[in-house]
Amino acid sequence: MSLEETLAIELTVNGERVESTVPVRQHLVDFLRTELGLTGSHIGCEHGICGACSVRVDGAVVRGCLMLAVQADGAEVVTIEGLTDSGEIADLQEMFVERNALQCGYCTPGMLITAAELFDIGLPASRENIREFLSGNFCRCTGYHAIVDAVEATLKQRLSR
């Protein structure tokens, strides 16, 4: 098996149709970063632990490093770039800046895309719920406190509107 096996795929990324031929062993984040230049999704551990690679596939947040690009054939993928352009979490992004919820920013796209799902589900905005929901995303800088602050403040702001 010396030749790299490839497969043609067709999917939607951030609302745009994409056609490509990819190595079957390439994971989704490598495809998004190297083929499409969408470098907002980061690669940390490549074995499902850190959450830096989080992307939204068919409406649900998943680990981009634990899904093959060929498995996204026919799917609707949204990355942090798409989420930013749509304005869906503009308030959360502003709050991250205001509350100092990022330092190096490596974990931030994953944190935001996961928090966006928390907003969709509409759990009560307790700090415990927020911590539990973000428990699969590592941050090596902030100590999490400021991140929980930003998510909590945004949730409260949305509820009061």
Partner: peptide, 12 residues
């Protein structure tokens, strides 16, 4: 089930 992994892992 809520004890199994984290949201992104449970989604898949």
């Amino acid at each position: 089930m809520p004890h199994v992994a984290h949201v992104a892992v449970r989604n898949r």
